[in-house]
Design a protein around this nucleic acid. Structure first.
Length: 284
DNA sequence: GACCAGGGGTGCC
DNA sequence: GGCACCCATGGT
């Protein structure tokens, strides 16, 4: 679990949770109820969840929060086959040793995952975090505890009612504003949902369905398939961070070609998402 | 002040 | 379907 906390801690501008002294604090929403929880790991590498005082919960909600956390950290997945493959792969061997235990940390909420994907398009990661923070702090809700605020991602119902002019104030490009509002409207109408995408049954069908949506291309679709819908074979092949990591690990002079990336994808199948996540960790 | 950033839409062929 | 061009702004 230490490797997972290390991932969460990597960016100081993350606004959806706080990591301090190897303890993660965040709000988890189940149904209508908001729970402020703290997670940490003991010497035996077991994770503990604690409901913060003042936010007590029923047994049923407790089970739902546990399920959320298991999904967030992908704890129901057996990684044995991935490690067997990765240990014999020249690119993955190093990263899986350095970050052993790391899982694809998810973004369980579909709207949040799509927004994060769109915000991250063609800008550096630092600025993407800044944009997300401004977006969340302007349109999201928060719980205050011990003098700090813990944020809840803006709801698609609320964002669906905005105009691009509203979002211009937070330095979001007009195009991105249109994309995010359009997606919020699709979700508010019920046309787009996590359940519907998962109901399509396969990665390819879910990908096709996502790419039809304005603002979602192959990269964003696969990013969301990987981090929200949890297809382990999703592969954001156009990802610049992935290209940089591969270039670094192979000590190559240039970034990998499309053909080389396709060859890696074939070797890593059906664990492309895990391969990508470990390779990202090399640089980020 | 270039150059790049966890891309995507649009128009043209 | 493949390609050039545009978007737009902050980090380095």
């Amino acid at each position: 679990m230490k490797a997972n906390l290390g991932y969460l801690e990597r960016n100081k501008n993350e606004c959806m949770f706080e990591v301090e002294n190897e303890t993660v604090t965040r709000v988890i929403v189940v149904g209508e109820t908001r729970h402020l929880v703290r997670l940490n790991v003991n010497e035996q590498n077991q994770m503990f969840v604690r409901f913060v005082n003042g936010f007590k919960t029923s047994k049923l909600d407790g089970a739902k929060v546990t399920a959320y956390i298991r999904e967030w950290f992908d704890l129901n997945r057996d990684l044995t086959p991935f490690y067997e493959m990765a240990n014999t792969d020249p690119l993955l061997k190093g990263p899986v040793q350095n970050f052993y235990g790391l899982r694809v940390i998810g973004v369980p909420d579909l709207f949040e995952a799509l927004c994060w994907g769109i915000l991250g398009q063609q800008i550096n990661l630092a600025f993407a975090y800044t944009l997300k923070k401004q977006f969340v702090e302007k349109y999201g809700d928060s719980i205050e505890w011990s003098g700090r605020k813990y944020w809840i991602f803006p709801s698609y119902e609320q964002i669906a009612q905005l105009t691009p002019d509203d979002l211009a104030e937070i330095k979001m490009t007009r195009r991105k504003s249109e994309f995010i509002i359009g997606i919020a409207q699709l979700m508010a109408s019920g046309e787009l949902s996590k359940e519907k995408l998962l109901g399509l049954g396969s990665l390819k069908e879910a990908e096709k369905s996502l790419i039809k949506i304005r603002g979602i291309g192959p990269w964003t679709a696969n990013y969301v398939l990987m981090r929200c819908l949890r297809f382990t074979s999703a592969f954001p092949i156009d990802d610049v961070g992935l290209h940089n990591s591969i270039k670094q690990v192979t000590a190559a002079e240039r970034k990998p070609s499309k053909e080389e990336l396709m060859a890696f994808s074939g070797k890593w199948d059906p664990w492309q998402a895990y391969a990508t996540f470990y390779l990202w960790r090399v640089n980020y």
